[in-house]
Amino acid sequence: MNPFFHIGRYFMLMFRVFSRPQKVSIYWRQIIHEINSIGISSLPIIAIISIFMGGIITIQAAFGFTSPLVPLYAVGFTTRESIMLEFSPTVVCLILAGKVGSNIASEIGAMRITEQIDALDIMGINSAGYLIFPKIAASIIIFPFLIALSMFLGIWGGYAMGVSSGATTEYQYVFGIQAFFEPWKLYYSFTKVLVFAFIITSVSSYYGYYTTGGALEVGKSSTSAVVYSSILILLFSLILTNLFFQR
């Protein structure tokens, strides 16, 4: 189908999503529910992946830095930069696109094919706003916390595995993760996270909301949601990197 059709329909849906809520208290309740559903339930996978990736990056960096010209603290520095700039904001968000995005698309898609969304519309409720706005708001609230946790655990994982395997020393690693720290890079990382949180929830909701047919189509919507969210995450990662890293 024509991509302009999807882009136009996506923006029209977003216009409905961000129209004035019918009852703010109900939306708040939904946002709290979604924070739990989207955020808290993602904690275990984020923790496991971050710890292991931190360890892997540290060990690989230590293995690669054989030249005596490279200082020993470069291992900690490399781990911090990799985790803070790319792994936590981008790779973890790609993982969340798979977990959260498919969940959102299939949940809303199933509601569509079982006429639950029609039921909301007939009651006079703005179904797009009621279903999608709390998910977007919840993800924008909770994703920065998840990614901050991922950064912390990634760097901690690098320390634990790097030191225990002998790839680096405690002093060199701790010195490395503090070396040449530039706070604006955190703004860059968290700007990316906010953009990606919006992309994951809105694109997945879009595919779920416009599901037609049956169970097979719900599966297809879920797949499309993950694929297009991931592509958009990479595209916007490139755009934001170009914007932030201009000399």
């Binding site: 199933a110 509601m111 079982t114 006429e115 639950q116 039921a119």
Partner: peptide, 9 residues
Amino acid sequence: LFQGGALFD
């Protein structure tokens, strides 16, 4: 009243 009920799961 929808054919399948359309209750919120």
